[in-house]
Design a protein around this nucleic acid. Sequence first.
DNA 1: CCCTTAGTTATACGTTTGTATAATTTTTCG
DNA 2: CGAAAAATTATACAAACGTATAACTAAGGG
Lengths: 212, 212
Amino acid sequence: MSTERRSFRREPEERRREQLITAALDLMAEGGPKAATVRAITDRAGITPGLIRHYFSSKDELIRAAYRYSMERMTAQGAAAADAVAGDDPLAALAALVRSSLRPPVMEGERVRLWAGFLHMVHREPAMREIHEATYLGFRDEVQRRIARLPHVTGPDHARRLAIAVNAVIDGLWLEGGTLPGCFAGAEIEEIGLTAVSAILGVALPGSAGEV
Amino acid sequence: MSTERRSFRREPEERRREQLITAALDLMAEGGPKAATVRAITDRAGITPGLIRHYFSSKDELIRAAYRYSMERMTAQGAAAADAVAGDDPLAALAALVRSSLRPPVMEGERVRLWAGFLHMVHREPAMREIHEATYLGFRDEVQRRIARLPHVTGPDHARRLAIAVNAVIDGLWLEGGTLPGCFAGAEIEEIGLTAVSAILGVALPGSAGEV
DNA sequence: CCCTTAGTTATACGTTTGTATAATTTTTCG
DNA sequence: CGAAAAATTATACAAACGTATAACTAAGGG
């Protein structure tokens, strides 16, 4: 009983690479780094294990590409949220940034766990570390740029420290909201985020309560 | 050339379990979950691989015990920092809590990465999830209890939302300070933390700048 | 001092992992 | 339409993984 070879279709290189990357990211988000084995990845991508090394020189290189891909996607989504605000009111833009960071699809358990799963590789491999720092600093710079335009901010150093604090609240709420979804009601985290950022900046962001 | 058996000493059960647990935690902190193999753990603990199953029914159970151990240790350290404050001034206690959370040994890259490495297991296994939630809520409740004693806080719900925000700033700064140690100068993170918490609470914590 | 008990080592086993390579099929081009 | 080229499958392999078990050795009580 000679088992038949499975039929296949040739695909452009870029498409295959993306299939492999998204398969790896999905698996890592669902089951952690250990779930993203070569066989599981190629299974989900609809190909056979041997093909992985036709598009990436090793599994590690695929994982690196996947990390780069996921970070670029996240950055693009964040930037889009802020740019979507009509006009150039810095308060409205900051509020939009806070809101979009603290609700799906950004604030999601799988997203947080995916990020956490990469942390060790990020620390070890310089290439991934650079991506990590650039992404963090990129987001923070965007926050800082809008903060610098607020009337009562005294200078670049002041704006920088405000941005660090604002970024921290967002990150902390993102973390807690993502990992403990049952502990918060509805849009509670968004409201708390807006109110806390308002307090830190000493301004009233649209949508925040008068008091924290 | 018959190789000699290595000599050994019998040790009490508790000691062996602790050796295995700390070895596992060290390895996970340094190289991630994937570095904590049975052989690496027993090597570092100074014993041979077969012995691991004499003290734990499986490797997974050892990892669970290690997670419980690390969380209990962290909670105890945090509580000690706040209790060490003389008198019962809630502002001084909150400031001490913020400070101790934002400097070593709590704010350290290895600590953050260890925590991140556990995240997936925490999500999957109910027993670990309970520990995670209890630890988070335990810390937050302690923060909330001190906040509730501030004169201008209106009620339990107000205190709760303030505690969530304060906890988020601390977590966010802990994360960023731990993973990007080169991006911040000296005690900068501590100062930013104190000033941000002061702004959120609408009080002046000792050690914070007048403005954020 | 020997003998029992249990802690410890040594060895082995089946599985899974990442990778390498040969065989085969699809696509393309003359 | 046939042949060359390239993508894809199938198979194999060494290494490492968690685990099971047998052999040994340290410790304690008679």
